[in-house]
Design a protein around this nucleic acid. Structure first.
Lengths: 186, 186
DNA sequence: CAGAACGTACAGTTATTTCTGTACGAAGAT
DNA sequence: ATCTTCGTACAGAAATAACTGTACGTTCTG
């Protein structure tokens, strides 16, 4: 929590309470990003920081080890939710949240969902060609044929879906999505 | 795994191998849905099942307890990834995967992300009004004012983002998304 | 009305993940 | 060059989550 000397005590308390509510709400729902609760909490802390923060300061504020801060902040940086900041004069690494949440959302999708889609597509295509090979060497076994065909239908449909998903992610990245869903609800 | 008697052994093996690759790819990346690996694996199993499946059959195929199947399948039903099916004559509950993955995607967003967005919005709005109250009872403390104003800017921007996110989810639900990103890439 | 079959709640166990403290390599300071 | 300071790898400890077996309520069967 940012130091705030010289505030009237009740008001400082009220400010911290207002922040705490938001930090906890954000932190709790951050499991959607595949992030642990404490890393989510760290994100919330950084969100209200008005200046870049060091690992030591985070550890002090979170009452956790510096090691945990290091791994937590790395997770956030990998997801581009937090940026490493350079400040001359300081030997310590400094971090601050990416405040453009539209960008954060697009990056998350690109990094996590996009990667998963590519991996699944690859597996689907490989299995698809294997099934086609089985179908080619048809042995007159009707039950086998039936199953192979049923699997192929499902796999083709899944491939179609993942291709769509990848195009959707591209629409996030290119910001085309804002044509359909504008930032401002006029 | 579905019984498939009367197949030539090599071909059955090849079929199972092709399925296994897809099941594992899907299962591995299903952490994105907040699902445990074994529930993800269960989903993959059901995906290649050509008929609805009972809990006992799942337990046998997964080599896991019926209790685990019960809780796993409930998770999947809650997310609308799997549907409970009624079949006259059978006293057992039957389940099958929802094969429309576009629908599954939309439902997941609606259920998980939509809920999180609503909760966060509520917290943000409450804290926003508290901060406005602090700002109103201005005590001449400039540092406090500065912090409150900085927090308000961030909160207002976050509210704007969550409103956008909710509209995005609505575009998934209404299928308007397919105007921008069509299912078929012509 | 028993009796059997089904799905799940719950508590205990097992497995996994998260967190910490120590140790070490890299890079700046003296 | 030596001495700090910094961030992180790594191994063990603590906390959490997943899985199982038993027990029980419900619903169908005879």
């Amino acid at each position: 929590m940012e130091r705030s000397n010289g505030l009237s005590p009740e008001q400082e308390l009220a400010l911290l309470k207002a922040r705490k509510r938001v930090i906890e709400a954000i932190g709790n729902n951050m499991e959607l990003y595949g992030i642990t609760p404490s890393t989510g909490h760290l994100y919330g802390l950084l969100f209200f920081q008005n200046r870049p923060m060091t690992l030591d300061a985070m550890g002090q504020a979170m009452e956790m080890s510096k090691t945990s801060m290091s791994t937590g902040v790395r997770t956030l940086v990998d997801l581009k939710m937090v940026n490493k900041v350079w400040e001359k004069g300081s030997r310590k690494d400094l971090y601050e949240v990416e405040l453009d949440w539209y960008q954060t959302f697009a990056d998350f999708f690109s990094i996590k969902w996009g990667k998963a889609a590519e991996i699944n597509l690859q597996a689907l295509r490989k299995s698809r060609s294997e099934l086609l090979a089985i179908a080619d060497s048809y042995t007159g076994d009707e039950e086998l044929e039936r199953q192979v065909q049923a699997d192929l239908v499902k796999i083709d449909e899944a491939i179609r879906y993942y291709k769509w998903l990848i195009r959707l992610i591209e629409a996030f990245e290119s910001e085309d999505i804002f044509q359909l869903v504008p930032k401002e609800n006029e």
